[in-house]
Design a binder for these strands. Structure first.
Lengths: 370, 370
DNA sequence: TTGTATGCGTTATCAA
DNA sequence: TTGATAACGCATACAA
């Protein structure tokens, strides 16, 4: 039996709330400074006796010590957090992106502080403010949909906090960005339809205010030109600007209906994105046009609804999760660079989309929607 | 013209990084204490001369002063952040919930720290650890899918941090919870089919490990009993346990296929959730069974894919965004209670689901899948 | 009505 | 190889 004095019972006095470093110091018999060095595995830890380390680590574990992130920040200026602002989380586009970001940050033991601008400029600004107050070490903006003028972001670089945008880019080299290569994507989609033998193709272009719209369409035009495919202006429509990222569905429905009313024959339809494609498919179905038998439809993005619809949607896949991961890694690299006083420059990354062939497209031999 | 001495230009010296309260104090000519009182509108602010307040506020604005959340926390023990752990953000169920949580927290100027457990226990624990380090003032767990035993959460109440779960509940009264009333939901679904005249109905029940499965099925059984509807055991299947929240799609597909192979006639199918329903619809379509003409299908949840599928899916809607909002309000109330040393007790909230009739169901007169 | 002094839990700079 | 000590930026008790 051990003598009473042997008992390491912590006097459960008043301050039973939180275990501080001082508690660990007392328990282990070393000074707070040493404890700090050991527990952070700081450079100086090389000079600490292994036995000491062990004792300290044991005490820490025994007491359930948890470093206080706030106190730590006050000294080290490191909050171990990154701000992540979504323009509109409602867009299924965002989910895999968020997953990618989260996963990358997790690897570095950083936490994401989540913000959703609801497509409102003042909300965006307010969140920026809040994130700054929380001293996030970096910022990621997922700007899939609406424009909010992001000059605000330029402000950040002044504060030396690395920022990256996903699905959007700013002029200049202040903010990093990760985007799909829309031109390749546009080509991929049209190429697929063309190779299936489609010649009469209807197009629903993206809203003017979306940055992806123009290059994606350029990809289409260039490819059409290359293979000598004629694009009938009567079969080209454009989604109206809107604040709702999922409005493409209604837009696709309406524009497809209009195509049908024109009684212009087409055997395939290329939509700006997946939801637009699904909207179009619904219009076609309502008019009794079967997909893909009478009309092939291709989307863009590869969000969840594309995979689980009936028929499943052929689409051009954006590697959304990867895009999130990359953006997070880019800013984290910036954070590390700042820490090590290394030089670091902003990055503009284009990722390559990929054709995903499913059930909504097939060869043109069979029929046509008119 | 003002004299040179009038210029309030801040010497852009070394410490141009961050504006602290001391800077504001110097600039306004008052002490840091007074500045603190004014800027926080603390109780003592009542006694401060309006002119003083004005001067201080102007200086603060002019200098672009931003309180340092970390430093503030160290004193006040308030981090102005709430941890939000998702078991698996990949589930479309989560998006509206997240939106609801975010919106409620925003109203109180709290930020959500986002965590995604990827359905892994150790990841869940690690995040809990990280959130504790960041001293979140409350915790919300969105446990839509897999079980991770949440005894860990009980730990939190010891630390006096209010917690709530969404889509899951714990025994005891340690943690608040917000759930749909699954029994009502189950009844609603069956009632709809029954009122459309369906008698031969196939059922795909939820996985055993999901907490919703049992009560939802109970609702079905009770209603069937009430109206004297017979449930054919050969037309009842159950989704296998799985770690992937979207696996219901494949499960629905497979089980619907099996029903079809049995050559038992049914004119309607009730699926555990929307994705399961969509999977089933794909199987039916593949077998040439038209929905809703030959077979009605109803889902549960009302996630995005349900609304944009073709045909659009009739479903029992969970008020997901509201559930998120409610959970956030519940824990925020706990936070305030703690602050005011008020009493506060944990809550178990059941929200009411709602039938959303769309295009995947119709009266039974027309045909049957066999 | 405002200012002074102190400490929150850590880390960094010394000195020992 | 380790320990004192002094900040970090803010909020409060207390003094003035």
């Amino acid at each position: 039996m051990s003598v009473p004095g042997d008992m390491q019972v912590k006097r459960g006095s008043g301050r039973n709330q939180t275990i501080t470093m001082r508690d660990v110091a007392e328990d282990s018999g070393f000074s707070p400074a040493t404890v700090s060095i050991v527990l952070n595995n700081a450079p100086l830890a090389r000079y600490i006796a292994p036995a000491t380390k062990k004792r300290i680590e044991e005490s820490a574990k025994k007491l359930g010590y948890r470093p206080n992130a706030m106190a730590r920040f006050l000294r080290s200026k490191r909050s171990h957090s990154v701000g992540v602002i979504f323009f509109d989380i409602t867009d299924p586009f965002c989910t895999p992106v968020l997953r990618g970001i989260e996963n990358a940050l997790y690897q570095s033991s950083y936490v994401p502080i989540f913000a959703d601008a609801h497509n409102q400029r003042n909300r965006f600004e307010r969140y920026l403010e809040m994130l700054l107050e929380h001293h996030v070490e970096a910022l990621i903006v997922v700007a899939n949909w609406l424009v909010v003028d992001i000059h605000l972001l330029a402000d950040l670089s002044k504060r030396n906090i690395p920022a990256a945008t996903i699905g959007w880019e700013l002029p200049g080299d202040i903010v990093s960005s990760v985007m799909v290569d829309n031109e390749i994507g546009g080509r991929l989609a049209l190429e697929h339809l063309q190779q299936l033998g489609h010649r009469k193709i209807a197009f629903i272009r993206g809203p003017k205010m979306i940055i992806d719209s123009a290059p994606r369409w350029r990809g289409v035009q260039k490819y059409a030109h290359t293979v000598g495919l004629e694009i009938d202006p009567a079969l080209v429509a454009q989604l109206p600007d809107s604040f709702d990222p999922n409005s493409g569905f209604d837009g696709g429905y309406r524009l497809a209906e209009e195509f049908l009313q024109k009684r212009k024959k087409f055997t395939a339809l290329m939509a700006f994105d997946d939801l637009t494609a699904l909207g179009a498919i619904r219009a076609l179905a309502k008019a009794g046009v079967k997909v893909p038998e009478q009309c092939s439809v291709i989307g863009f993005d590869d969000v969840l609804p594309a995979a689980v619809s009936v028929p499943s949607l052929t689409t051009v896949r954006q590697p959304l999760e990867t895009m999130g991961t990359n953006a997070a890694n880019i800013v984290m690299d910036g954070v590390k660079a700042g820490l090590e006083k290394r030089d670091w420059s902003t990055l503009r990354q284009k990722v390559t989309p990929e054709l995903v062939i499913r059930d909504s497209t097939r060869d043109a031999a069979h029929g046509a929607a008119d």
